[in-house]
Design a protein around this nucleic acid. Sequence first.
DNA 1: ATGAAAGCGCTAACAG
DNA 2: CTGTTAGCGCTTTCAT
Lengths: 339, 339
Amino acid sequence: MPADRPAPPRPATLDEVARVAGVSRATVSRVVNGVATVDAALRRTVERAISTTGYLPNSAARSLVTRRAGSIALVLPEQGRMLGDPFFGRVVDGVLGVVRPRGVHLVLTTAGPGTGEQVVADLRQGRLDGAVLIHTHSADPLPALLTASRLPVVLSGRPATPTAITWVDVNQTAGAALAADHIAARGRRRVATISGPLDTPAGQDRLAGFRAAMAAHGLPDVPHAEGAFTGESGAAAVERLLAEHPDVDGLFVASDLMAHGALPVLRRHGRRVPDDVVVVGFDDSSSALACDPPLTTVRQPVEDMAAEMARLLLDQVDQPGRPARSVVFAPTLVVRESS
Amino acid sequence: MPADRPAPPRPATLDEVARVAGVSRATVSRVVNGVATVDAALRRTVERAISTTGYLPNSAARSLVTRRAGSIALVLPEQGRMLGDPFFGRVVDGVLGVVRPRGVHLVLTTAGPGTGEQVVADLRQGRLDGAVLIHTHSADPLPALLTASRLPVVLSGRPATPTAITWVDVNQTAGAALAADHIAARGRRRVATISGPLDTPAGQDRLAGFRAAMAAHGLPDVPHAEGAFTGESGAAAVERLLAEHPDVDGLFVASDLMAHGALPVLRRHGRRVPDDVVVVGFDDSSSALACDPPLTTVRQPVEDMAAEMARLLLDQVDQPGRPARSVVFAPTLVVRESS
DNA sequence: ATGAAAGCGCTAACAG
DNA sequence: CTGTTAGCGCTTTCAT
């Protein structure tokens, strides 16, 4: 029978430090919080007392009076999607980079039924100071819930309906144009595209951006098939496209996942990639690398975007009345073997 | 100039509810906390008052008196390693599965210089109730720091030196035996292994387990080269192995990462996998899939293990005096094209 | 079964 | 510049 480990002793409190230093609690508090108007000698005394007592401020007591939890939530899309994707880690990394130096905790959650209400409750209970929402589906009630509660939130991606909410996004139009320019530079003239769902901002913007850019290259009427950002929908869409336009030699697919579904279909129809058809995706997700051949794709500066979201959120926490803002980042093209 | 959004109103407090219900704060508190000894009728009244006021208990005030933060930390290995790996998401998933139903928050951190001290401080400040540490390197001071502080911690992986600390691990020996049995079943008799660093528990156990199992298959003297769990070390190790034993036809590599480094070397030396040499890895990490050909490997039940770590941690939080425990899980073999 | 009162540890007016 | 004082919102004896 192993010896029970004694519970750790309670840390010292402010009064204990005050007693040791021979001053009042208020003075100790001032020293702890770095208030400038404390006599240098006294400060020294207090600091000594702090280190001899091993004092650490109790966070609950502090939160109770400051009304700050000192932590924000990161809400990721439901389990399936993101968990495997390196994208996930890049987001965490970006957020942690700005949050940690400020001593703010990152609480991780995945979206699901009831998550919205839970997050709102946590915010109202003072357990959370704000939330960063990653890629909520357009049907997701979460953003609405949070904005309605007038609580600090930042969204990834422009919301479907214009809302007084802060968000960060990549320039979708510019990203699609990058793809278009690349395909044109490869000398392809029989170009088509598989778009995302046209009831989403990303779906719309990527299609519009691609068409506009191709028009600038002298191809005003690029055919397109609509997909749903899933692998299967990509396969189905390319099937339709090939039926109507068997001679395509350049293809922009509005998400890597759809491209991943489309490539095997191309092969089955005897098209070699990139020789017969060059293919460009969007997202630079893990599926871009899982593609055969590896996919040329449009990449978002995920870490930077995540960091910016964190910054915007903390600003919002510090200045509650602040109006909503939005920041748009420039995408880049990652060239691999598919083009 | 957009209109400033008014700050959200402060939520109701216990006294407000008490006033509305015409009872004392104590009674409301009892209702909120589900104390059984409250008159049914009164309880109803109070519940009505709670919902009309939209009352939510303030978490800081509660924490201050209960001395529970209601959140635990998940400490992941330094940024590089894990971020891209799906392993990461599986761990989060497992922990979230047990933690969320209990209303406990998951605070995410990555290990780095100063992380240990920070986590200890957070625990002592009452910001955190405990910590789950994932795969800390053997040189990592973190576990020692935490156990020394007698704070609730659970480790992934048996610690290098026996310590009074709770940990969860996969049965490394059994995993290596799985690999051995599989290689033997493939009819290979000129078998070798690339081990991990022999100053780590995993390194030792995987080698010992593999040798013992191969001995049972009539091969008592399996040659081995030591690696360091990195891709380069795997490449170097297989180079040495081929020099001394050019006729190997079966190879167990104690980590996928090392296997990932070893495979190109095998190819360069004219060995086809799996025809000339079957290769089995360990971990089922993302590099197993990135291998060419995809790697047969030993898989840990990561979600289950993570969930168990969370459970053990929460137990420890609830019962501070509780002695350390350890739980060992059974691995499985994932067969892919490399064998 | 309910209420009164004390106190968790800290910050922030307000005096001095 | 420092000390006194009054809470922050909640749980929890202790009486009743």
